[in-house]
């Protein structure tokens, strides 16, 4: 491929008239990709609401057995990372690549903190037999029932039916989200490498903005997951 033979900072790719056109095209492409992400998670959200409607009790029990403090911590971490990412884009736009680099490092650090917290949450669930696959489902019901909120204790007296399905959706949704965080980390390292190579300028920063948009959608999906899974 003979595409790398031009200076990306000052010259548009061969099939574009101008850097502006190229930037607009790239940005629109990322936005469309965001639409596909929403539709993909949308399927899982439909599943969530369907089963919530069918088996209300299991969602109360399942939700209560999750550690909302850790969930809240992760929400905070992601919000901070979204802020630093947005700042990084702004800094690249005004040419402060060094500042942008630092901000992206903070973003990556937040992403790792998120994954580490998630790891502890997951391993606690696996430990109590709440992983719904590989024949590992063997929930410690006394533990789970002990986690119930006071307000729920009067309503739910027996083991809720199909509690397993709650954890199926919990692991599927947060797992898919976690994979997106991992991909995000990969994209950040790609951006870091390109900033170090001095590839971006106020005229050419499409990749940084694209990764920024991606990171925000990952954040927004979590903003919906957190209350649906942990709080209500």
């Amino acid at each position: 491929m003979s595409t790398a033979s031009y200076d990306k900072k000052t010259q548009a790719a061969h099939h574009f008239d101008s850097l502006d056109q190229q930037h607009e095209a790239g940005k629109q492409g990322v936005w469309l990709f965001m639409a596909t992400e929403i539709m993909m998670f949308g399927g899982l959200f439909v599943g969530y609401f369907l089963y919530r409607f069918k088996f209300h009790d299991m969602y109360i029990v399942g939700g209560d057995s999750l550690n909302w403090q850790l969930g809240a911590l992760n929400t905070l971490v992601l919000l901070i990372s979204s802020f630093t990412m947005a700042q990084a884009v702004t800094e690249t736009m005004s040419g402060n690549n060094k500042k942008a680099l630092k901000l992206i490092y903070v973003t990556v650090a937040c992403a790792f903190v998120f994954l580490i917290v998630k790891y502890f949450e997951y391993s606690a669930k696996v430990h109590h037999g709440m992983f719904p696959g590989f024949d590992m489902w063997n929930p410690d019901m006394t533990y789970i029932m002990s986690q119930l909120r006071e307000s729920s204790q009067g309503i739910i007296t027996a083991d809720p039916a199909n509690l397993r399905l709650f954890f199926v959706l919990y692991f599927a949704m947060t797992g898919l989200h976690g994979i997106h965080i991992l991909i995000g980390i990969g994209l950040m390292f790609w951006i870091i490498k390109r900033i170090k190579n001095d590839e971006f300028s106020p005229k050419y920063y499409t990749a940084v903005e694209g990764v920024g948009l991606y990171w925000h959608i990952v954040d927004i999906i979590w903003i919906f997951l957190f209350p649906l899974m942990y709080l209500i």
Binding site: M40, G43, P132, G133, N162, V168, A172
Partner: peptide, 29 residues
């Protein structure tokens, strides 16, 4: 197309991990 993507992914999980989201005996639909 992304909706097909997630559907097929869930079917793969159903088959490999036995998650039961489409299995009536486990409460799935």
């Amino acid at each position: 197309t992304p909706v097909l993507g997630i559907t097929l992914l869930l079917l793969i999980f159903e088959r490999t991990f036995g998650i039961g989201i489409f299995d009536a005996s486990m409460g799935g639909d």
